[in-house]
Structure formats: structure tokens, C-alpha cells
Amino acid sequence: MTNANAASEAISPAGQTRVWDPLIRIFHWSLVIAFTANALFVEGDSKIHLWIGYFVAGAVAFRIVWGFIGTKYARFSNFPPNLKGASEQVMEIASNRKRLHMGHTPLGALMIYNLLLTLIVIAASGYLMTTDAYWGVRWMEELHEAAVFWAEFSVALHIAAVIFESLRLKVNLPKAMVTGVKEFRN
């Protein structure tokens, strides 16, 4: 059933479609800022690192709720984890075929679940590092750092994939995440 739904979304529309609601866009870009700040600039043992971390945890919690009650393309049911769809998308790229997706593509969906889970691990391990029980416990710190490294790798892959798909399908995906509108050019 979910497969049939996903397939019916993958039509070839021309023109513009409003896909990302304002909350999704605010979520996305505030997460970009918060993650970049904490991963690259803010000292790990500073107060502000913790506050940014709590913000990220809150944003992820919001995204999960929004995945159930949000707008059409924000719902998890609109982009269920779908390995078959993902491998089809890989085949489609390999064979130079184009198929446009209104919402998240199957590969994009896997990246979203990966990032959400990784951020949960980062936030939870980061919080635990501040508790009496895990204060100065090295393996918790190592888990936190490994998860951050995995997130950085994933973000790099995500950006590369967005650029690649934008050029391949002639849809400006970064712009769509700003305006909320996917513009399909033929």
C-alpha cells in the first residue's frame, strides 16, 4: 500500500508545486545553523554548546511529531523507508533515466531517517555526558564524537546528493527548501 502511494507521487509534473511547509523549512535551516555551530565552532564544554544541543533535540522532537500530524509531504507516510524504491532510484540514475518526485525521493528519505537517528544519538549521548553517572566517562564521549563524525559525513553526502540531483533533474532543490516550492523545468 505504501509502495503504491510512493509510486503515485512519482509523476512528471511541469511547473510549480508547493511541497515544503514553513515549519519544515524553519526546521531544516535552523538545524543547519545549530549543527554547524556546535560541530565546528562552539567549544564542547561551554554552556552555549549545551543550549544549542537542547535546541537540536527539541527540533528533532518537533520533526517527529510533525511526521505524524504535519502537512502532506512532511509526513513519514509520504516517504516511508523503502529499500526497493531506493535501489530503483540508483538504477534510474545509472541508466540515465529521469523520474521526478514531488516530495522526498526514496534515497532522500533514507538520508532523513539516518540524520534524525544520528541526531538523537548525538543529543542523548551529549546530555548523558553532563549527568553525574556519565560525567567524564570516556566511552560516552567517544560515542558522541563518533556520531557527530557520522553526521558530518552524512551532511557532506546529503549536500553532494542535493547538488547532483538538482543538476541531473533540473530542479533547484536548495531553492525549494527556501521558498517551499519545487519548480520543475522541462
Binding site: F149, E152, F153, V155, A156, I159, A160, I163
Partner: peptide
């Protein structure tokens, strides 16, 4: 090229 730059930063 873009992704290797990003990975380098990471």
C-alpha cells in the same frame, strides 16, 4: 569536487 571539499572540512 564539492563533496570532497566538504568531507575534508569534516
Amino acid at each position: 569536487v564539492a563533496s570532497s571539499l566538504l568531507l575534508g572540512t569534516a
